[in-house]
Design a protein around this nucleic acid. Structure first.
Lengths: 122, 122
DNA sequence: ACCCATAGTGTCATTTTGTATACTAATGGA
DNA sequence: TCCATTAGTATACAAAATGACACTATGGGT
């Protein structure tokens, strides 16, 4: 295996990838968006643990990294739709792999899988 | 796609998996350990950006999560060897996928790959 | 007139993460 | 005798990530 480059903070490609999806909620946001376009509050309802502010930030960062597309409709009440970009979609297999791994290796989910043995593909 | 569970902080399997390898240095540590057993300072030299303290912390967390095995030899000077556990090795494909993704999608590395087009497998 | 909803923003507090620096103990080498 | 090495720990501190909570504008319903 090759050495991991001169290595400062974004020293490794591994680290670079993790910087992009490693935010506390980014993985989950991406996961939900795999399923298709979602509005802001739709995402929010799917992730009750996150505050509006954090969700906004994470979405903005994902947008800045080119993984998520933000479409604003000039309506009242406001409507904003989020979807994966082509680049974002390149993470699909990784997100699904993380989900599968979490389901089999994070104790908290192990039981859940037995009761709900759906295929691990979207 | 299924709803993401009652969803508190470790609400998603995706999030659970990310908690485990999402630490700032954990991905890189795991990546280096894919290659085989390493001593503390060996890892440290491979990641000049990390302080001893952080490296220690990340290794302890990985150990606590059962991904890394820590073997202490009662010698002088001290010797401690780190290696992947069987559970840790289940992340191999994911780490390699993250590396491949980083190399093609994180701008910083894109050029690097052209100059060094090694196979993306270990 | 009052309340609801949307997609946020502003302010502040707390938690997590990271850094710097000095310290340890036993041994081998100069 | 002094210094380097190993794999850390202790203490103190700074910075970044995250969280709680109140607030906004607009229009529709009652």
């Amino acid at each position: 295996m090759d050495r991991c480059a001169p290595n400062r903070s974004p020293g490794c490609p591994v680290e670079g990838a993790l910087d992009v999806i490693g935010g506390k909620w980014k993985g989950v946001v991406m996961y939900h968006l795999l399923d298709g376009t979602k509005r802001f509050n739709e995402l929010h309802r799917m992730m009750p643990g996150v505050t509006q502010r954090m969700l906004t930030r994470q979405l903005r960062e994902l947008e800045a990294d080119g993984l998520v597309h933000r479409e604003v409709y000039a309506e009242v009440p406001p409507r904003v739709e989020y979807s994966l970009t082509a680049k974002g979609d390149t993470l699909r297999q990784i997100i699904l792999a993380l989900k599968a791994w979490g389901e089999t290796h994070v104790p908290y989910y192990a039981y859940d899988k037995k009761q709900n043995p759906e295929r691990l593909k979207a």
